[in-house]
Amino acid sequence: MHDTAGRPKNVLEVNDLAIRFGRTEIFSRLSFTVPEGAALAIIGPNGSGKTVLLRALIGAIPFEGTLHWAPDVRLGYVPQKLDIARDVPITGFDFLRARAALSRTSNAAAFEMLTAVGLPVEAGAQPIGALSGGQFQRLLVAFALVGGPNVLLLDEPTAGVDEPGQERLNELIHRLQQDRGLTVFLISHDLSVVYRHATTVLCLGRERHWCGPPKDILTPDRLHEIYGAPIAFHVHEP
């Protein structure tokens, strides 16, 4: 969808956002917009509020300032590592079936997502507590894809996933963004993935925030300033 001037419309507009826990300010004066179909990477040192920002975007945390989603967004969310009770008899199928019912999608379509994220179908029959960390992470990505979301919010979706699995998930996310025009929000510490796939990088620093194309943000000097230490990362050119 485009506005009258032919520019893609904004999926999200954030203005002067501030979040405090008690007296601790996590961040403030954060403003940015995200056009439809963008791949926004959120980077920054530990404790800079990346996860908090994502949770505020889904309405889980109170905030000051304004935050506007386009009216037709359907969110898919992959949280950072979840602590789930290991002994709960809920299987991957139960979990996907539940999501399918909530979004009025067929079970078959939901189960197909297992294949999309590279999980064997048998893994769906296992209690989720019996899955390995990487398998569970893939299940969460599969879950986020059920119901045809047009916006994906991913908080380190490949944490704990093996190397080929990471590659596969990153490619899948990239493909969804490119081919189906999904808008992607991605928190990642993997700067080479950010460099390759992001259209915009939002960097939460301790003192200030930066937002721009990867080429402008991911420069050695800027990264040094953001992380307080020299950062070298390897860019795999295609």
Binding site: I58, P79, L82, V88, F95, L102
Partner: peptide, 20 residues
């Protein structure tokens, strides 16, 4: 509400984004 309860059990945040 079985389905909503299951999703909320695994992750309240995910349930929220699923419209619960």
């Amino acid at each position: 509400e079985k389905h909503a309860l299951v999703v909320a059990l695994v992750s309240p945040d995910i349930a929220r984004t699923a419209g619960v």
